[in-house]
Amino acid sequence: MTITQLHYVLAVAEHKNFTKAAQKVFVTQPTLSMQIQKLEDELDILIFDRSKKPIELTEVGRKIVSQARNIVNESNRIKDIVDQEKGFIGGEFKLGIIPTVMPTLLPMFLHNFLKKYSKVKLTIEEIHTEAMIEKLEEGHLDAGIAATPLNNDLIKERVLYYEPFVSYIPYNHTLQKLDKLTVEDLDVNEILLLQDGHCFKDSVINLCKASKDYLDNNMRLQSGSFETLIKLADEGLGMTLLPYLHTLDLNGDRSKNLKMFEEPTPAREVSLIYHRSELKMQIIEALQSVIAGVVKGAIAFQNVQIISPKPAK
């Protein structure tokens, strides 16, 4: 049994196709098939049910894949130990960022990070939280930036900053007369929301203490972007809530429609998350340091109430 064979098994388990898996690991399909066949012969079991289309794992195959991930992760740790001993910060690093953080945070830190750590080959993917967690667990991402806490035993979290919720209220709305809002001022039926899949939507629902069943029984306008929500609010179709960093670039007229909440200000916790195996920690720590350095000047809020991104039950 070899580490290479386990890499091949994981590739087939992911792609459910020998040809695609071979392309992924940069070998010919016959080579990959032969090595997996040798492993199956050695273990005297079938890892894959090749009669199914697409290919499926057998029952014992699922257990082998789970253990193979652990073994491959531990083998990768050896290179990590050497890199840390040498003080080397470089190599490939795959980072996921949730859509409601990506547009504001990425421009703030990316240039500084790449300039300071030019040997890191950074690949960035915009991805929703649930898919991010799955990719972290399967080793397809090295780290992610997401709203937390996630309460996942396989995932570790390092808080980067707390980002307050800011209300966007058009000039003709009844709440426009208030200097600051309280949670009790909110009516979830008047709030324009992001589409399902965005954890910020779940945080807003949790803030309003409203159930999804209640929302589903009402005609609601939902969008995939904060810019669309702002435009809909400007048309008199309701109000919306925005993360603080999204409000910094609003022009003069729109900025007049922003209202903060009374303290403790409802906020989301944004963290750098990674697998508990703690691979590539030197790059994770470098990312944390650079991001903390650029956001501390933009967000200086202390008295906040963290609103969970986990969907309300």
Rank of each mutant, 00 (worst) to 15 (best):
F109E: 03
K231W: 01
S203M: 10
G144L: 00
T100R: 02
T182A: 11
T174D: 14
P54T: 11
T129E: 13
A146M: 04
I47Y: 04
G91E: 00
L32D: 02
I205V: 14
N112L: 08
T31P: 00
S277L: 07
L250Q: 03
T28S: 14
I291Y: 01
I97C: 03
D44E: 14
K24L: 05
V120R: 06
P107H: 08
A143E: 12
S66K: 10
F301P: 01
H111P: 00
N257S: 15
I89H: 06
L32E: 03
G224F: 05
P266G: 04
L192P: 04
H128D: 12
M102C: 08
T4I: 15
K24W: 04
M219W: 00
E59Y: 09
L192F: 10
G224N: 12
I124M: 12
Y161V: 01
F226D: 09
K94M: 09
V294I: 13
E262T: 08
L229H: 05
L272D: 02
S271M: 10
R50E: 14
R62G: 01
I47G: 03
H275T: 04
K135I: 08
L39W: 07
L232I: 06
P309D: 04
H7E: 10
L136R: 08
L178E: 14
L106I: 09
I291N: 02
K79P: 00
V290F: 03
I127L: 14
S167G: 15
N112I: 07
D80S: 11
L122D: 06
T2K: 13
Y162W: 11
A21D: 00
Q195M: 10
E269W: 03
T247C: 11
L39C: 07
L279D: 05
G61E: 01
K209W: 02
P103F: 08
K121D: 12
L215F: 05
K86N: 13
E134K: 12
P107E: 07
Y274W: 14
S118D: 14
H198Y: 15
F261N: 01
L95Q: 04
L272V: 03
D196N: 05
N112G: 02
E190S: 14
I307L: 11
I127P: 02
